[in-house]
């Protein structure tokens, strides 16, 4: 009797190991984020940055932000936000970009033409448990609509909307789209690009 029970226990242990082995033959056995967790992560974390927030940060020369352009190389070369790094979505999981993305010092902001690619990229990075990653809500299309070509609010609009508008106007001028009709009298609060002071050339000889 005793022998039999020992045998059973041994069998059980072997069985348990067997299950464990089957388990670990999966493609990524030690993947930290399981499907169930991923849904929770997505629905619980704050993952968006609005175009206004980004504009504010860029205008104050915030050194902690890092922009990542997920579009193709050709699109990136045509136009990109200043300082952005191009990582096409297909190459996001490549090893060469791991160091760029896997860090917790800077705030990474993902963008594409809208938020579509950024949403997918965000999902992949959260599967890889990368931190500090945000999506530019609305992407470049909204960047144009709100920052480069802001619409003037109606006269009946709230004061906050006007304040928002005047900020956007200033931003639009800063980022170079500031031609939209009727120059309004908005004082720019933000720092203008610093003009290099030309030092007067050292007077060479005797004049």
């Amino acid at each position: 009797m005793n022998k039999i029970s020992i045998l059973f226990v041994v069998l059980l242990v072997i069985g348990a190991f067997g299950v464990f082995i089957i388990d670990s033959t999966q493609k990524e056995p030690f993947e930290k984020v399981q499907p169930c967790d991923l849904i929770d992560i997505i629905s619980q974390t704050n993952k968006y940055v609005t175009t206004d927030e980004l504009a504010r940060k860029m205008m104050s020369d915030d050194p902690t932000i890092m922009l990542i352009d997920l579009r193709t190389k050709t699109e990136f070369e045509k136009y990109s936000l200043s300082g952005a790094i191009n990582i096409p979505l297909e190459n996001l999981a490549d090893k060469q970009y791991k160091e760029v993305l896997d860090q917790d010092v800077r705030t990474i902001i993902l963008y594409s033409n809208s938020s579509d690619l950024a949403v997918k990229a965000w999902m992949l990075t959260s599967r890889l448990t990368y931190k500090n990653i945000y999506i530019l809500k609305g992407g470049l299309n909204r960047w144009v609509e709100t920052i480069l070509k802001p619409k003037e609010p109606k006269e009946t609009a709230l004061r906050t909307e006007f304040e928002m508008y005047s900020f956007r106007k200033a931003a639009s001028y800063y980022f170079g789209g500031g031609s939209t009709v009727g120059e309004t009298v908005i004082k720019k609060k933000t720092s203008l690009p610093i003009k290099r002071k030309k030092k007067s050339a050292a007077g060479g000889g005797c004049d």
């Binding site: 070369e77 045509k78 136009y79 936000l81 200043s82 800063y174 980022f175 170079g176 500031g178």
Partner: peptide, 8 residues
């Protein structure tokens, strides 16, 4: 003719 021109 904005202040800065960021096109590539």
């Amino acid at each position: 003719s904005g202040a800065q021109n960021y096109s590539a």
